[in-house]
Structure formats: C-alpha cells, structure tokens
Amino acid sequence: MNLVTISGPPSSGKTAVILKTAESLKQRGLKIGAVKFDCLYTDDDVAYEKAGIPVKKGLSGSLCPDHYFVSNIEAVTAWGVEEKFDLLVSESAGLCNRCSPYVKDIKAVCVIDNLSGINTPRKIGPMLRMADIVVITKGDIVSQAEREVFAAGVYAVNPGAVIMHVNGLTGQGAYELSTLLFDENQHIDTLKGKKLRFSMPSALCSYCLGETRIGESYQMGNVRKIDLKNN
C-alpha cells in the first residue's frame, strides 16, 4: 500500500483535490481509501463515501489535532493494509499553522489556495515548508499575475517542493497529481519505527488538561506570557 498525507488550511480544497485525483487513480484500477482527521466536526466522510471511497474519520475533540493525528495514524495505516488499498490518503486540516504531522519517507502534500492572501505562504510553518508537493488551488478565479506571485511566495519558503496548480472544481491538473501520488514500487506495511519530520510543540499547560478557570493561580506547566512592554 502507498500512504500519502495531505494537509492544508481549512477550505483550501483538500477534499476537492483528493476526490478529483482519486477519480484518475480509480480509472487505473487502483483501490483508494481515505481517512479524515479533524477537530470538532467534519462531513468530508460523506463526500468520500458518496464517491465510493471507504473512509474513516477521527475527531480530536479537546485534544491537539496534530498530536491526535500522530497517535492514530499507525492504527489507520493498519486498517488500510487490511482493506488491501493500493493507496490510503489521510486528510487533515492544519489548524494552528504550526505543525505538520508529516512522517519521514511518507509522501506529504500541502494544499493551499490562491485566495488565502499573498503573505500566507510565509505564515504557514512546517506544514508548507516540509511538504514534498505543494498543490495550489482556486487558480480559476484569480488573475495570472496573482497566481505567479503566489507561486513565487510558496517557492521562496519551500524551494525543493514540486509546485502544482490543481483546480478542485474542474479537476484540471488532478490527473497529473495522481501520477505523483501513487508509486507501484512503494509498499508501506506499517508505520512502526518511522519518525515525524518535525517535532511538535511541547504544549503541556493546565489548559491542555482541562482547566477552565482564568487567572494566574490556575496557570501551570508550560506557560508563556505576552510581552506587553516591548510589543
């Protein structure tokens, strides 16, 4: 089985791109499965099911969604292997723009859209910087110049990535992307022993553990204060 992790800001077009890409892969007779990681709510599973793609969803609820991802991706991979998928795609929203639960040696795709603003590539951390492939969507509604400026911004923060334009509505570019996602010589049986490309923040304060009261005396663990004087 091949495993690909796809992340990107909410509404950047991840689901749309995955569905269009899966169409091309299915035409080649490949069996695709999906897993959706989100925070509180998702209806992406309905979209995958409707497209005939077996799907599992995981909601992190009160936990950090990226920590939740890492704690579960191994089990999900085992599910994919058991289901004999040729390709398992994991979709997760980069919620705080900080993390990237990308795994070493597992293809990582970041989906980002042209409407998100010219400085966005710089604001997104490892999720964009560490991706192997950056897919830029919604090029159909902005000008050529804006597409070029945006792509140059992406290139400046991740010069080593393959940068592609895919239209999530029409599927333009999705066939091309599909050829990069599936490699018949790759076989992932388990993720055990693999490592994250980048460590996650050690966020462990009282609020991580369910504290709700506000005030100095309730703040414990890894707490940091805003510097109002030199701000």
Partner: peptide, 27 residues
Amino acid sequence: RFSGNKKLVAQLSQNMNFVMDLTVKEF
C-alpha cells in the same frame, strides 16, 4: 513540470478576478 518558477502556460479567462488589496502600480 515541477518547478514553481517555470510554467509553460499562462491562462486568461472570463471568471478571473483580482483579489489583492493593492493599487495597479503596487500590484
């Protein structure tokens, strides 16, 4: 194919709009 700085085709279509908040010159 792969480089972000080198694309063969530029596209112009009816649906495209400017979305940035800039003057013509700044843009």
